[in-house]
Design a protein around this nucleic acid. Structure first.
Lengths: 156, 156
DNA sequence: GATTAATTTGTAATCATTATAAATTAATTA
DNA sequence: TAATTAATTTATAATGATTACAAATTAATC
């Protein structure tokens, strides 16, 4: 799906939720759609939008991200580093993607496939909890860092 | 396992990591062990410790929690509400427990059993990522809120 | 095009957390 | 047991992310 049609779809969502379609909001959404990187902070997104629309304010970016979170266009993530990050929810995805957080280098890799369908069923049945969504992050060592660590061991 | 023996075990861990065993640290650990509630914030823990040891400072509680996180005595959690929460890691548990976060009432229930052993294996094999730990939170509607919602519907 | 309520801007305020400097103290050693 | 020393604590200031505010602007509607 191309960017223009995704933008149109989000425009429609805004309209249906009776949000106004302002240039600032469009610019922010466009940055999110065009940027291939995920889990950017509000500040980082602000910087990117500012390149195209220098007059935009940081508070507007925060408000827009909050609105997009409500609309489930983006997912707001909190790791343990004290600032929120935002991921564009993938086309048609019911859930967030999962994350692989490397404890060595801090990199964050994404897992697109939903690995939790069975687990959700267990939770619903065993805990009588109606699951709407989930967040799953694995903490560990990414492949690159595993190699590095191995090389360091050999070098000693 | 009783509180005294758990406290002793933690004392030993502190000693082995060459942390000093101060009354403030003991008091904080004791509050965590005695309190049946989990996912308390630093501020809440501070209030509880202050009842027993009124002279303790907030910064000390923060530092102690950081130390206990490093020692994996507690797990630091970040939901999307802008303040960290701390869970005592259960005796012998390799992993965190999972959380069920109710979108209606905000309650947080715990799931002790590890539901992700298979999933971890998939991640290790398919993504060549060495899994050390994980964090899993389900977002949805708890049983109590499901009942309430149902009653409200009937009432209308 | 006029109206109106929503939105934006820049900035101040807030809140959680961390840093600092001086005073205290746990652990070690004589 | 007392002296030593580096770690720790305290109160408070500083920081950084996020939110609130008031005045100015503007998108959507009629």
């Amino acid at each position: 799906m191309n960017i223009e049609s995704m933008l149109n779809k989000i425009r429609k969502q805004l309209h249906e939720a009776s949000y106004k379609l302002t240039p600032q909001r469009e610019a922010t959404v466009l940055v999110l759609l065009e940027n291939e990187k995920d889990h950017l902070s509000a500040e980082e997104i602000y910087m990117l939008v500012k390149q195209k629309s220098p007059e935009i304010g940081l508070a507007t970016v925060y408000r827009t991200l909050e609105m997009l979170t409500d609309l489930k266009v983006v997912d707001k993530l909190s790791f343990n580093d004290g600032l929120a990050r935002y991921d564009l929810r993938k086309e048609g995805a019911k859930h967030f993607h999962h994350h692989l957080l490397c404890l060595e280098c801090g990199s964050i890799e994404e897992v697109e496939e939903d690995l939790l369908l069975d687990v959700e069923e267990i939770v619903e049945q065993r805990y009588l909890f109606l699951v709407k969504d989930h967040r799953l992050t694995f903490h560990g060592v990414c492949n690159a860092c595993q190699q590095k660590l191995k090389n360091n061991q050999n070098a000693q």
